[in-house]
Design a protein around this nucleic acid. Structure first.
Ligand SMILES: Nc1ncnc2c1ncn2[C@@H]1O[C@H](COP(=O)(O)OP(=O)(O)OP(=O)(O)O)[C@@H](O)[C@H]1O
Length: 849
DNA sequence: TAGTCCTGAGTTTTT
DNA sequence: CTCAGGACTA
């Protein structure tokens, strides 16, 4: 078959989007041999490139089933080898390498999974190879010998220590399946992960692996550490004197409480910013240091004053019946001391504990798990010291290496085969990580062939960089039939996300953002939830203060101060005091208190009787929150955004109750506080490119990965580099950054695109940037580099550089020309606009257009 | 009490 | 540059 250009002749739907192509898009496959540009394309494509293109054609043009199967059978082994995906010896249509090969073909996978009409003999085989593991009940079949050993080691401490993509998580899920298949009740299993995303992913994998009904399955605990801690506190917190309605303090509550206690402790915000103070206190808590311990270990001066403030902070939280995130881990430990019978109960309940990403557990989390493991010590941890990226939060990168000391007699299993990435990606990752000195040496190899080289794009500026990403992504959609959902864009900091979103939106490429906290941190959400919090826990002064006069109801600053004064005298909560002594306030304020009281009690009643959804709807009505917004927000677009946020909050309640039945205010607030549920009603995880930080990406994988901002100052982050005057750069910090880069790189299965910008506009100033040291360490000479200005190596001569810039502005594509390949194809398939996949722009996205 | 204007600080990563 | 929070005035 000749190479050619895929051109959609009917709907502008050149890219392939799962779930959208129920009817075949007609694609003409035009051979373009002889075109001057083709020589270039062919040469470049002679590696794996050709493969997806070939597969894309039959998938869209074929109608007959027989044709489909024969074509696949004919093409697969040969092409696979030619493409370098599978070594010749294993390039057959059966066995593990076939599976590996299939995983690299999103299009094929899509067909096998979604086109029920296609039922050729290979379908079962393909599905079998793709699904994880092959079929429910056959979980052992998809494992290599060391994995099997780990899965079958069912008693005593077990550590799986292995590099990225070696199937550690698969071990965890299959081990759970194995436990269940031996007749153990799923309720005896508790699996813990670090992030919501990972927990969700694991639940999904378990669901596919275990042969169990939904009911039974739900008795199995698969959750994050924090949600596990909260569960324990909710069930048994009364032993600690924990108030029934204890609320979870969000970041801004923590901040305002911290600001208060700092003032009381005589700690000026110029000395240490409240946010930094909060951060430091959180670190103490994560290390398991109580206020006394902190005071003892603190250096004299600011730190010891802060330790005092820490004590007050804790007291204040307790007074208001609040828990901060760290308490969710810390307080269960107190509980176990206070009420050993509770611990014994848990030990009896969970006979099997599993911890994913063990390298990220901090001191307290370790204690928690160890305690629940008890004498049975039936703890299975999987991890990779090279992927430890949470030291800043109290995790100890060496903890995973200490496992055998912490749990004497532990079985340790190591895995060496990487099933995720193609060779060149893996080699780069290995080169990068071996630069670290503090690490355990590991073997890591891949049988997936060399694959494509890692690509590096050197952009002119930040705009050029995002242009590159979107252009390249569209191209991959057109040429390689990339599903949007097979693609992810990774970045170091959340702030890098916005520009990407804008660019994607401009091209109408669908996307989804993972874990951005922006929804929950919106003022509208926090306001409305504060009413709910108050309804649940009248002692929650933080919540009261936020909404006491929102929307304005005549309770001004002086009234509030009065109430706070009385409350302090009586040692009572602000809300109860306010209600009790409303008559001592000015008439307007008194009326305000009465109406607030009415609102709060009604929320509670409504929620109790009818559920959260009506309670929230009623709340927005009763407070006339929407009208309030209409009055205070002038900008029409901004208003629209905020109104939609209110809608989305209602939808969130609705979604929660639709999936798990009538909910209590508590479970609603908890779910939101722990960010366990996506915001709004988008349970229908629409297809789209995934945008997420490298931290959030840990444990996930994508065939196509972009990593942006490969610059000194971003990755490694400048706070980790150490200041210029500082002679001793912080090696530990740099090594963590390097591990972070390693995590990012190892998310990619098939293609990896790195990029950085030569200059960036920050705070209105244009700043020159330099390439990340990690690029050098990955092996710059192995990267396929494309420069924004030219493909020839950068010329130091300034004049010529400028000339090039000018020239590129006039050459049709604008300054954002990607590599020659791109240009060629854009000509072939005239910009058909963004792919069809329509994504209704989510509410929060319309904000900054 | 509520709205407007101005200053100054901000960019790490998660629950 | 942009947004948030503080000071100031009606
Ligand atoms: N024995 C196996 N045969 C074929 N594929 C496998 C095998 N084990 C795991 N895989 C596949 O390899 C990929 C990586 O597996 P998994 O996510 O479990 O790795 P991991 O070690 O947890 O990675 P990370 O360290 O990045 O979290 C997955 O796509 C998984 O399906």
């Amino acid at each position: 078959m000749r190479h050619g250009v895929l051109r959609s002749s009917h709907t502008p739907q050149p890219s392939f989007s799962r779930g959208q192509v129920s009817t075949c898009v007609r694609v003409t496959f035009t051979a373009r041999a002889g075109h001057p540009a083709d020589a270039n394309v062919s040469r470049r494509r002679s590696q794996t490139h050709v493969l997806p293109a070939l597969l894309a054609a039959p998938a869209t043009t074929m109608t007959g089933r027989a044709e489909a199967t024969t074509s696949f059978n004919a093409i697969l082994p040969a092409t696979a080898h030619r493409a370098g995906v599978v070594p010749r010896s294993s390039a057959t249509s059966s066995g593990a390498s076939f599976a590996g090969f299939l995983r690299l073909c999103p299009r094929l996978r899509f067909m096998a999974e979604n086109r029920s009409k296609w039922s050729g003999p290979n379908r079962a085989g393909i599905l079998c190879a793709l699904h994880e593991p092959p079929m429910p009940g056959q979980h052992l079949a998809g494992l290599n010998p060391p994995q099997q050993e780990a899965v079958e080691t069912l008693s005593g401490p077990l550590l799986v220590l292995a590099g990225a993509g070696t199937g550690k998580t698969r071990v965890v899920t299959c081990r759970m399946a194995e436990i269940v298949s031996r007749g153990v009740s799923p309720s005896a299993i508790c699996a813990v992960t670090f992030t919501n995303k990972a927990a969700k992913e694991m639940k999904e994998r378990v669901r596919k692996t275990v042969r169990l009904g939904k009911k039974k399955l739900q008795t199995m605990v698969v959750s994050t550490f924090h949600s596990l801690g909260l569960r324990i506190l909710r069930d048994h917190g009364h032993h600690l004197g924990l108030r029934k309605g204890a609320n979870i303090a969000d970041e801004s509550d923590q901040l305002s409480i911290m600001t208060d206690v700092m003032r009381e402790s005589g700690l000026a915000r110029t000395v240490i910013r409240p946010n930094d103070a909060r951060w430091k206190v959180s670190l103490w808590k994560n290390q398991g240091l109580r206020p006394d311990d902190a005071l003892e270990s603190a250096e004299l001066g600011v730190e010891s004053t802060l330790a005092v403030a820490y004590g007050r902070y804790e007291a204040e939280l307790r007074r208001q019946g609040l828990l901060d995130f760290d308490d969710l881990i810390l307080r269960p430990l107190d509980l176990f001391k206070e009420a050993p019978q509770v611990l014994r109960g848990l030990q009896d309940q969970w006979h099997y504990l599993l911890v994913d990403e063990y390298q990220d557990t901090n001191g307290c989390q370790y204690e928690l798990i160890k305690a629940i493991g008890g004498a049975r010590r039936n703890i299975c941890c999987v991890g990779d010291d090279d992927q430890s990226i949470y030291a800043w939060r109290g995790a100890d990168p060496e903890r995973v290496l200490r496992f055998t000391r912490d749990f004497p007699g532990a079985v340790v299993v190591t895995l060496e085969q990487n099933y995720r990435s193609t060779g060149l990606i893996l080699e780069g990752a290995n080169r990068l990580i071996t630069t670290n000195t503090q690490r355990r040496e590991k073997k890591l190899w891949s049988a997936l062939g060399r694959g494509e080289p890692i690509e590096l794009y050197i952009a002119e500026d930040e705009k050029d960089e995002v242009d590159f990403v979107t252009t390249r992504a569209m191209l991959l959609g057109q040429k390689e039939a990339m599903c949007w959902e097979d693609c992810a864009i990774l970045f170091r900091a959340n702030s890098q996300c916005r520009p990407l979103e804008q660019a994607l939106r401009a091209r109408q490429i669908p996307y989804k953002v993972v874990g951005t906290r922006s929804f929950f941190d919106r003022r509208e959400v926090r306001d409305l939830l504060s009413f709910v919090r108050l309804a649940k826990n009248p002692a929650d002064d933080a919540a009261l203060l936020r909404i006491v006069n929102v929307p304005p109801r005549g309770i001004g600053k002086s009234s509030i101060d009065k109430v706070l004064g009385w409350a302090a005298e009586d040692r009572a909560s602000a809300w109860s005091t306010m209600k009790r002594r409303a008559d001592d306030l000015p008439a307007r304020a008194r009326d305000g208190v009465r109406s607030l009281e009415e609102i709060v009690t009604t929320i509670e009643e409504l929620a109790r009787v009818e559920g959260v959804t009506p309670a929230i709807s009623w709340l927005t009505e009763a407070t006339q929150y929407r009208d309030h917004l209409r009055q205070t927000v002038d900008d029409a677009l901004e208003l629209q955004t905020r109104l939609t946020i209110v809608d989305e909050l209602e939808d969130t309640a609705r979604t929660l109750e639709a999936t798990s039945g009538k909910a209590s205010l508590e479970s609603f607030l908890d779910t939101l506080a722990l960010r366990e549920q996506d915001f709004g009603d988008k349970e229908d995880q629409s297809d789209g490119i995934t945008l997420l930080t490298m931290h959030a990406a840990k444990g996930l994988e994508f065939p196509y990965v972009f990593i942006v901002g490969m610059e000194e100052g971003i990755l490694p982050h400048r706070n980790s580099i150490g200041s210029e005057e500082d002679d001793a750069p912080d090696d530990r910090a740099i090594e963590e950054e390097r591990r972070l880069a390693y995590v990012g790189v190892t998310r990619a299965r098939q293609r990896l695109f790195l990029s950085y910008a030569r200059e960036r506009t920050r705070f209105g100033r244009t700043v020159k940037r330099t390439m990340s040291r990690f690029l050098e360490e990955l092996g710059l000479d192995t990267l396929h580099v494309t420069d924004s200005t030219d493909d020839t190596p950068a010329d130091p001569e300034v004049g010529r550089e400028m000339l090039r810039k000018i020239r590129s502005r006039f050459s049709g594509g604008g300054p954002s020309n990607v590599d020659s390949e791109t240009v060629t194809d854009t000509k072939g398939a005239p910009d058909s606009g963004a792919a069809a996949p329509t994504k209704k722009a989510a509410w929060w996205e319309s904000m900054d257009d």
